[in-house]
Design a protein around this nucleic acid. Structure first.
Lengths: 182, 182
DNA sequence: CTCGCCTGTTTAGGATCATGGACGAATGGC
DNA sequence: GCCATTCGTCCATGATCCTAAACAGGCGAG
């Protein structure tokens, strides 16, 4: 086996912030199996692997397609934005490193205390954005961070995510997503 | 198992024109295993499935990604072309049934006896075309057919393919491919 | 400290997969 | 007809996967 199924599964599980037991419960398998697979002590049957991924959920195609080596950068500081404009027109590009981006733009405003919902969102495509004003708490998979003006984000929308304005002033974000969900 | 691994494998094998035993030999497994998998009598381990696909060769990601349901029509007779023009302007569309087509156009001419090479080509993307003049022998996977004026083709470029002019007059084809390989 | 609860790992045994070989059917040559 | 070859399927056995349960370590509460 040249392909490291164990490492892939562990990455996926940790991105979703699940323990072996929790994933096993959702998938309807035992925690021991998750452990054995992640250690590459067994090569799971396709049926078993599908059951496990159903607990995330993630398709087999996605599982074997996702690039787990190049751990996708999720958070971008002010200095992480790439300037691609001219002296007259400043264009700072978010996630310039990632290829095959196809995005559409949104402008979002969050009142103090508001959020995108009590539960995290999860859908097809990718999304990214920049905070223009205020502060926003962003949860992506198992990672949480509060972003302020000038900071940015970019992640796969398949990973459960949630925005919440934890500050006292309104928050404004310039965001982009693809394919268009609205 | 909602995903029909058996049917997928059988489709892949037949596209490449291999028998169960021949695929088994290349993959280093037994023909019985191929048979059992194709009948969904077993759910192969990821390791076994990878060995089998290495015999094609095809990656696990491709295997679970390819669209095998819409049994891709490869050859199109004159009547298989869909007329989408008006009474004044006749537009006959090749592979109209297939969704998500993104093509660019080429004009190809083959001198008598010439071919695209001794070995079959295989690359990313999709390609299709129409024979305008002459006759061309087209090999796609395990299928071979000689196409004449007005007939057409459309297939995934990942499947090994080869063009050869077996006639005595030059052959002209209007073809399209995506993403652009030139 | 102990207790409770969580984490991931390990082990024995039953369930499933994978093998090597046998089988019947279909095909082509002689 | 008859043999040789190839096809896909099926069967018994050994190999591997998967489960259930036990195990060791970490961490906070009391």
């Amino acid at each position: 086996m040249s392909i490291d199924v164990g490492a892939r599964l562990r990455s996926v599980r940790l991105i979703y912030g699940l323990s072996q037991r929790e994933l096993a419960r959702r998938a309807g398998v035992t925690n021991g199996l998750i452990s054995l697979i992640e250690q590459n002590r067994v090569s799971p049957s396709v049926g078993s692997l599908k059951k496990v991924l159903d607990g995330v959920p993630m398709s087999l195609a996605e599982f074997f397609t996702i690039d787990v080596d190049t751990a996708p950068q999720v958070f971008y500081g002010d200095d992480d934005l790439v300037e691609i404009g001219t002296a007259d027109v400043s264009l700072r590009l978010v996630a310039a490193q990632r290829s095959a981006r196809q995005l559409t733009i949104l402008r979002e405003r969050y009142a103090p205390g508001s959020a995108t919902g009590d539960d995290a969102l999860s859908h097809r495509g990718e999304e990214g954005g920049v905070v223009v004003r205020g502060r926003i708490e962003l949860t992506v998979g198992g990672s949480v961070r509060v972003l302020g003006p000038g900071e940015a984000y970019y992640f796969s929308s398949a990973i459960p995510h949630r925005f919440r304005n934890v500050g006292r002033e309104p928050c404004e974000i310039i965001s982009a997503s693809a394919p268009p969900t609205f």
